[in-house]
Amino acid sequence: MNDRLLVKLSGVVLACGVIAGCATQGNNTVTTPEAFNKQLADADTVAKGGDQDRAIALYQQLSKTDPTREEPWSRIAQIQFTQGHYGQAIVAAQEALQRDQTDRQAKSVLAVAGLRVATQSLGELRQDASLAGDAKSDAQALAKQLRDTLGEA
């Protein structure tokens, strides 16, 4: 496996661990739905104002305030996707979908971010002329499946 791919995958795994850790450390603070919605709207305002890092922090706090709600995770997924942090976007989208399997935005982020990670990895595998064996054949099979799914030649 080439070093750049290993570094990228290591970064994604680390980020996934950090986000998953944040999701599993409960803060059993109970709030009313009205208070939660107000805090969510405040975080949305921060996000629209352009301070994405602060917005993510506010959404993460909201996810601890009411761990059953998918909205903070869905919004984190969208921000991470927009910033090109596909690994983190995938993890956040999965968190949202664990709470609401009908969240179309989270499904979309999960699908497209997954395709972008796969495309990047396939590109790097293609450039590695020394790659042979099962990894290469698996990558070729996956690429064919992606092309078939997308209706591309």
Rank of each mutant, 00 (worst) to 15 (best):
F81Y: 04
S63A: 11
D53W: 07
G11I: 04
E71G: 06
E124M: 11
L58W: 15
T82V: 05
S63T: 04
E95L: 15
K8P: 11
Q94F: 10
A129W: 12
T102L: 08
Y86P: 08
D100L: 11
V12H: 08
D100W: 06
G114I: 02
G84E: 00
V18Y: 09
R147N: 07
T31S: 10
Q98I: 08
E71Y: 12
S130R: 08
R69A: 11
K144P: 03
A15V: 09
A41R: 06
Q140K: 14
Q94D: 10
L6C: 14
A143I: 01
K8N: 14
V112T: 10
A139H: 05
P72C: 03
N28T: 12
A41C: 01
D66L: 02
G49D: 03
R54Q: 13
D42M: 00
L40E: 11
G87L: 02
D148G: 05
T102G: 08
V112A: 02
Q61L: 07
Q105Y: 11
R147Y: 02
K64T: 06
L115T: 13
S108N: 10
T65H: 09
A111Y: 10
M1Y: 12
L122N: 10
A106P: 09
T65A: 10
A111L: 12
L150G: 03
K64S: 07
G21N: 02
T149M: 06
T32F: 03
R69M: 08
K8V: 15
P72N: 07
A135Q: 12
I19T: 02
N37A: 08
T31H: 12
A139K: 02
I76V: 07
E95H: 15
L142G: 07
G11V: 12
T45V: 01
A132K: 15
T149P: 01
A89Q: 00
A132S: 14
Q127P: 03
Q83S: 13
V109C: 02
F36A: 04
L131Q: 14
R4S: 15
A15T: 08
Y86Q: 05
A92C: 02
V91S: 06
D53E: 13
Q140P: 06
L58C: 13
V46Y: 03
A89K: 00
A77M: 01
R126S: 11
R116W: 03
Q94K: 12
S121F: 02
S121Q: 06
T68D: 07
L62K: 13
D3S: 15
P33S: 13
R116L: 10
R147P: 03
A141F: 01
T68F: 07
R99A: 02
V13D: 06
D138W: 09
L9Q: 11
Q25N: 15
E71W: 09
R54A: 11
A96C: 04
K136G: 10
R147A: 08
A111P: 01
Q25A: 15
T65N: 12
N27T: 09
N2D: 13
T102H: 06
C16M: 10
G49E: 02
K144H: 04
A47T: 01
T68I: 05
R126P: 02
S130N: 12
R75I: 00
I79R: 05
E124H: 05
